[in-house]
Simulated assay, not measured.
Amino acid sequence: MLHIELVLQGLVNGSMYAVVAVGLTLIYGLLRVLHVAHAGLFTLGAYITVLITNATGNLVLGTLVSMVVVGIVGMVVYRLLYEPLLKQPPYVALIASIGLFIAMEEGYRILFGPYGNSFTTTWLTERVSLGPISLAAADLAMLLGAIVLLTFLALLMGRTRLGMSWRATVTDPAMARSFGVDTIKVRYGIFFLASVFAAAAGSLVSVLNNLVEPTMGSVPSYKSLAIIVLGGLGNIGGTLIAALLLGVIEAYGTIYSGAYLDRDAIAFVFLIAVLMVRPQGLFGARA
């Protein structure tokens, strides 16, 4: 029974990492830039969800508004921050992204205060029984929400023009343009989609923890960077598998090595161990 509960908890955490990391993977595959400011959009999504939900009593409305608003903000970030730097070395955009993330954290601290906001609803603390296993309602909401979002992403990337254009642009931008792919629209579309996923992840984490505070994006973003390396940079399928694997490893590690390692350190120990054996990540191609 303990193993089943650990696997379920690992899948809950892993699904959260997957929703955060998939946006980073989409953008890295397109621009070869580590979009650290993604964590700031994650936090913005959480704040919008909590504020609207508390005002209206409707979590679904709060989440949807959050996704749309943060998606638009993501496109603005691309236009004002990344587009002027596309011809510069990748580290220039990375430094700019880190600076934006720090500025966003301080902005949230000024606007919303340093201590955090919570939902006023009570259902988050309830537990749901699945046979002999009991899960918190917030954990179940996280798992189901992640399944819906990732299924939507799979359909979108596999069966729509945006998905095909993204794959073509990632593989060979010049060839994609020669076949009529509007790479500028693809970039805006991918930034909107990645930012929508950042907002959704922030909403789910705010439900999971019942707390939103200015620095809440830091740890998930660092782990997401580790995950996209583990999954093979730009590999969506590898990112999802690596995220779920990391969640399960953390769940077991907390029980069996919690006396020696903090839960958040387990991700980086696992990353170092994998990269010593496979520098290209679990699912990356060798150079």
Rank of each mutant, 00 (worst) to 15 (best):
L81V: 09
P220S: 00
A136Y: 10
P89S: 13
V70A: 02
G232R: 00
S195M: 01
F197A: 03
D262Y: 09
T160H: 04
L81Y: 02
N210I: 05
A37Q: 12
A21G: 06
M104W: 10
L150A: 10
Y108L: 07
S97Y: 13
L261A: 12
V207W: 01
L261Q: 06
R79Y: 12
A287H: 10
R177I: 15
T239I: 01
V196P: 02
L153E: 03
G10F: 01
G71L: 03
G281V: 08
I241S: 05
I227W: 05
T43L: 04
L153W: 02
R109I: 01
N209Y: 14
V76Y: 01
N54H: 08
A46I: 00
F179P: 09
V69S: 02
M276S: 12
I110Y: 10
I4W: 03
G158T: 08
V205P: 11
I48D: 00
L31N: 10
A154S: 08
W123F: 10
V274A: 06
T43A: 14
T183A: 12
A198Y: 13
I133H: 06
A154I: 07
I184K: 14
G180Q: 04
W166A: 07
N54G: 09
L24R: 05
L156E: 02
D139K: 03
E213P: 15
L211R: 15
G234D: 04
V65D: 00
